[in-house]
């Protein structure tokens, strides 16, 4: 369980446009253990999405090194649950979920089975043949999560997947995400603005500095799994950890507002 799967050394990302340079990440160092659920929090614009996009291969780093020690073949190393509505409107729910399997040439019957499995886990088994415009926002986000899991990646990258949802939906989806993740043994990197969510989901919480983003502090979350939000929230340890994270985060949020 303690094998290191990702190691990031002095990662720097500079966005250059015509007459402007934005240093999004500066000398970021981070190590992620295999099977770990790592949550990243940080002020808006500090480079969380950028970091995730670099890990997903969607963006090139400017300097630094990233080592991903993958031991798998024939399936993707990473899969992303994006910030925002990323479900293809032109595909049915099930076609969305089996998308990556189709790209990889998995035979139709097998991928239907896999997709159905994850749809069921997400409580969407009755909506397989719906088009996304017939779904609510919460259901679409479930499709997003199911699509990422169905691709069976070694590392799951999630960028505020529940950020746009209402509180009730968020609570339910957090619980469902944990259920499906706990059975999978996958490494997860999860970005959020919510400290509650970070503590509830994570094994470890990393707080990033205001732009340019670096790792400012990391907190271990000791709570046993499976977890239950309500009982967790009423423990003194939860409140203690919440305060610690918030104190560090608050400084950076204030900095980023200047």
């Amino acid at each position: 369980m303690d094998r290191e799967i990702i190691r990031i050394e002095n990662l720097t990302k500079i966005f250059r446009s015509r007459n402007k340079e934005v240093v999004a990440l500066k000398d970021l160092n981070l190590s992620v253990k295999e099977g770990e659920f790592l949550v990243i929090v940080g002020p808006s614009g500090c480079g969380k999405s950028t970091l995730l996009r670099i890990l997903a291969g969607l963006e090139k780093k400017t300097y630094g090194e990233i080592y991903i020690k993958s031991k798998i073949e024939n399936r993707p190393i990473t899969a992303v649950v994006f910030q925002g509505d990323a479900v293809f409107p032109w595909m049915k729910v099930i076609e969305n979920v089996e998308y990556s399997l189709k790209l990889r040439g998995v035979p139709s019957e097998e991928r239907k089975k896999i997709a159905q499995f994850y749809l069921k886990l997400m409580g969407l088994e009755n909506f397989a043949d719906y088009y996304p415009h017939q779904l609510s926002g919460g259901m679409k986000q479930r499709v997003n999560v199911a699509r990422a899991f169905a691709s069976d990646p070694e590392i799951l990258l999630m960028d505020e997947p529940f950020g746009a949802l209402d509180e009730q939906n968020r609570l339910i989806l957090q619980q469902e995400l944990l259920k499906i993740w706990e059975g999978s043994g996958k490494t997860a990197i999860f970005i959020t603005h919510s400290i509650d969510e970070a503590i509830f989901l994570g094994d470890r919480i990393v707080v990033m500095t205001a732009q340019p983003g670096r790792v400012k502090a990391a907190f271990d979350v000791g709570f046993e799994r499976p977890r239950e939000m309500l009982s967790l929230k009423s423990t003194p340890q939860f409140i203690e950890l919440y305060r610690k994270v918030w104190e560090v985060l608050k400084e950076e949020v204030l900095k980023s507002r200047k």
Binding site: R53, A56, G57, A79, V80, F82, A86, Y99, L103
Partner: peptide
């Protein structure tokens, strides 16, 4: 964002044309 999804699942060019 749809282009990113296809890329993140390493769709080939032709797959990108036909599916996105």
């Amino acid at each position: 964002i749809y282009i990113d999804v296809a890329k993140s699942f390493s769709a080939s060019k032709i797959q990108f044309y036909t599916t996105v």
